[in-house]
Design a binder for these strands. Structure first.
Lengths: 209, 209
DNA sequence: CCTTGTGAACTCGTTCACAGCT
DNA sequence: AGCTGTGAACGAGTTCACAAGG
C-alpha cells in the first residue's frame, strides 16, 4: 500500500466535516471557525485545524473557513464529485434495509443492484432497485461498472460472495458481515461494525456509572 | 465520569470478540488462541491478549482460551446478560430500517417502540413494533422502562427528541443523526457514523491507488 | 483582535520481547 | 512446547502554545 498522505483519523473527521458543511451550507451559513466545528462535531479545534491543513490552502479569514471552499477542497481530495455505482450483496438484515431505502446511501454512491443467494428472496422482495441471484454478481457488476459493494451476507457465505465481486472487478467493499475479510487482490475492504455500536454503548453504561 | 478501567480501543475489540465467540461457539469450537482470533478479527494477537488481561483471569491452556469462559467474562464485564428495552426515535431512513427489521438489533437489546413526529408516518408504516407520535416519548419510555434509544431524527429535530428522551429517564442513546450531540445529564451518548463508512471507503480508494 | 497554521510536548495505543504458566 | 501475561520501546494522534496573517 502506498504511503499515507492523510492520517487515518483525519480522513474520518474530514468525512464527518464534509457532511456537516453540506448541511450548514444549505442553511445559508458562509463561514465557520474551527471552534464552531468542534462544537458541532465533538473533536478539538486543534485537530480540525490540523486536518484542514492536510488539504493544502483553504480560503479563510477572521470569520473562519469559507464553507463552500472547504467543502470543495475535501470533495476534491477524496473524489466525492464523481458518482460511483454500488450494489448490495445479501438481502437479509441490514442489506434489506439498504436496498429498500436506497436514499440511505449518500452521494456520490448510487445503488444499481441487489443480490441474494435465495432465489425466493430475490423474487418476492419489493424494492426500487433491481434484484438478481448471487451467481449473476460477476456479470451484472461488470455491466454496470459497479465500483463499490455493500456486503451483508451471513458469515459462512461472505467469503464466496467477496470472491465473486473481485472476479467482477469490484474496487471497494464495505463489509457489514460479522467476520473480518481480507484479500491480497487490489480491493479496498472496510470492515464496518454498526451493529456493535449497541453493545459498545452498553459496555460504557456498565463500566462508568 | 469515573476512571476508565478499559481503554476505549479494548472495549471495541472485546465487543467484536464477543460476537465472534458466539459464532464459533455455536459451531462447537471449544478453544481459541490469540493468534487465531487475530486472523478472524484483524487485530494483532498482542492487542487481543492485552484486552483479555483487563478482564481478569480467563481460563486458558496451551490450546488457547476457553471459548465459553472468555465469552462469559466479557459478558459479565459489559453487562450483556441483562436484557435491555430499547426504542427508535425518527422513522425515516435508518430508523425505518431498524423498526422494520428489529432482528438487526442484537441481544440483549429489545425494541419496544418507535416514535416519529409525523402522525401520518406513525399511522401508515407497517411494522412489527408499536409506533407512537413523538410527544408520547416521555410517557412510553417510562412505562416500558426503556434504557436505550436509537436516535435517527433529522438534524433540526435531534436535540428536541433527545431532551424528551432524557425527560423520560433514558440511560443511553445511539445517535445516528449527522449532528454531534452532548449533554451534561447523566446519559451516555454514542455518536455512530455508519453512513460515513461509504465516503471513508471512497476516500481510501482515492488516496491509495 | 480573533482567527489559522504548526513545531514541540505529551498521551494513548500498539508492538516487541521475553518471563511465567499449564 | 506452546501458549498467555506484561513491562519496555515505539509510534500515531492529540493537545499545547505561540507565531503569523486577514
Amino acid at each position: 500500500m502506498k504511503k499515507q498522505l492523510f492520517p487515518e483519523a483525519s480522513v474520518y473527521r474530514l468525512c464527518l466535516l464534509y457532511r456537516l458543511l453540506e448541511s450548514i451550507g444549505k442553511e445559508g451559513v458562509r463561514n465557520v471557525t474551527s471552534f464552531r466545528i468542534s462544537e458541532l462535531l465533538g473533536s478539538s479545534p486543534d485537530s480540525i485545524r490540523k486536518d484542514v491543513s492536510f488539504l493544502g490552502s483553504v480560503r479563510s479569514g477572521k470569520e473562519g473557513y469559507d464553507v463552500s471552499d472547504l467543502s470543495e477542497c475535501i470533495g476534491r481530495a477524496f473524489g466525492f464529485p464523481v458518482t460511483k455505482p454500488a450494489c448490495v450483496v445479501g438481502l437479509e438484515g441490514i442489506g434489506a434495509a439498504f436496498i429498500q431505502f436506497p436514499e440511505l446511501v449518500p452521494p456520490p454512491f448510487q445503488l444499481k443492484a441487489g443480490f441474494d443467494s435465495s432465489i425466493n428472496r430475490v423474487e418476492t422482495l419489493n424494492t426500487p432497485i433491481p434484484l438478481f441471484p448471487s451467481y449473476q454478481i460477476e456479470e451484472i457488476i461488470q455491466r454496470e461498472k459497479t465500483e463499490i459493494a455493500l456486503l451483508t451476507a451471513p458469515p459462512g457465505e461472505a467469503r464466496k460472495q467477496l470472491d465473486r465481486l473481485i472476479a467482477g472487478g469490484i474496487r471497494g467493499v464495505i463489509n457489514f458481515s460479522p467476520v473480518f475479510l481480507q484479500t491480497n487482490e487490489k480491493v479496498f475492504i472496510r470492515n464496518s461494525a454498526v451493529l456493535e455500536d449497541f453493545r459498545i454503548l452498553s459496555a460504557h453504561m456498565e463500566l462508568y456509572n
